[in-house]
Design a protein around this nucleic acid. Structure first.
Ligand SMILES: [Mn+2]
Ligand SMILES: [Mn+2]
Ligand SMILES: [Zn+2]
Ligand SMILES: [Zn+2]
Lengths: 142, 142
DNA sequence: TTGTTAGATGAGAATGATTATAATCCAAGA
DNA sequence: TCTTGGATTATAATCATTCTCATCTAACAA
C-alpha cells in the first residue's frame, strides 16, 4: 500500500503533469475526506501547509484535475465551483433556495426511456442528473 | 379571448404588482415565443419598444416574475439566468461543454424510488431534474 | 382633475467569483 | 549542475449581477 504522496505522483505522471508541491496538497485536501468542496475552502485548508499558495493556483489546478478525471465537478452547470474526490457515478440533490448539494443514491432513472426522448445526436453516455427540491432547513422555514 | 395586454394586467393585479409599461413589455417578450431567454437577450428585445429601459429593471422584474410564478427559471442552480414562459412541468437537458439547455419530454423518473432515497425532510414536491450530457454539436467535435 | 405617496425606474457604482497577465520560480531531464 | 518549458504568484481585469439613491409614476383619495 503506497502513501498518498506516492499515489498522487503516480496519477500526475500518468496525466503528464508535473508533480508540484502545490498540486500535491490541493489534491490531498480534496481526496482526504468525502464531501463537496469550494475553491475557497480548499484554499483555506491548503494555505495552512503552504502559506504562500495563491487562490488562482487552486482554481487552475482544480480545473486541471477535473479535466484529467482526477476529481469530479459536482455540478457542471452551477454558479460556483464545487469539486469532490468521489469518482463513483452518483446523482445530486440540490436545494433551490440555498443551493446546497448532497449526494443521492438509488436507481431512479429509466435510462431507456430517457434516451428515447433525447434529441438525435445528444450524447448520454454517463447521464448524470441533478434533482431539485428544498432541503430540510429551507422547507422548515416555510 | 383577451389581449396579452389585458392578460398581463390581470396577472399583475392578482400578484399585487403595479402594471407598469416596462413590466408589460418584459413579460410579453418572454411569453411571446417558446424558448429559454437570458436577461441580455430580453433587454435587447425590449429596448426596441422602450429605449430608455435599464438592464437592472429587466433583471429585477424577471426575478420578480419568477418569484410570483409568472415565469419559470430554467435552471435553479445555473451560472447565468435563463427564463421561460412555459410553466408546464418539464425537464431539461444540459450540455456539460457549452451549457446549452433544451427541453426534454417523457416520464423517465421513478418518483417512488427517488423519494425513498431522498434524505428525511427534503421537500420533493415537483421534483424537476436536469440531465447532463453532450449536445450534438459538442459531441461531434470530439 | 389634482395631490399624495409607496413603489418602480434608471444610471452608474459596487460586488464576488473567476480568469488573464506577466514576472519569477522550479521540476525534471540532459 | 544546467537548461527549459511549464508552474506559481501577485495583481489587474472580466463578467454577470446587485446595490444605491435620485427621480419618476401608477394608483388611490379628495
Ligand atoms: Mn457527490
Ligand atoms: Mn424549458
Ligand atoms: Zn436549502
Ligand atoms: Zn454543447
Amino acid at each position: 500500500m503506497q502513501s498518498s504522496h506516492e499515489q498522487f505522483r503516480e496519477l500526475a505522471w500518468k496525466c503528464g503533469l508535473a508533480a508540484t508541491h502545490q498540486r500535491q496538497v490541493i489534491y490531498e485536501a480534496v481526496v482526504a475526506m468525502p464531501g463537496h468542496y469550494s475553491p475557497e475552502s480548499i484554499f483555506a485548508e491548503v494555505r495552512r501547509r503552504t502559506p504562500s499558495i495563491s487562490l488562482a493556483t487552486v482554481y487552475k489546478n482544480l480545473r486541471l484535475f477535473v479535466a484529467h478525471g482526477l476529481l469530479r465537478e459536482v455540478s457542471p452547470h452551477a454558479s460556483t465551483l464545487l469539486v469532490e474526490g468521489n469518482l463513483e457515478p452518483h446523482h445530486h440533490l440540490v436545494c433551490t433556495r440555498c443551493k446546497a448539494v448532497q449526494d443521492i443514491e438509488g436507481d431512479f432513472i429509466n435510462y431507456k426511456k430517457l434516451s428515447r426522448h433525447a434529441p438525435r445526436g445528444f450524447d448520454l453516455t454517463q447521464p448524470l442528473v441533478e434533482v431539485f427540491g428544498l432541503c430540510r432547513r429551507c422547507s422548515a422555514k416555510k
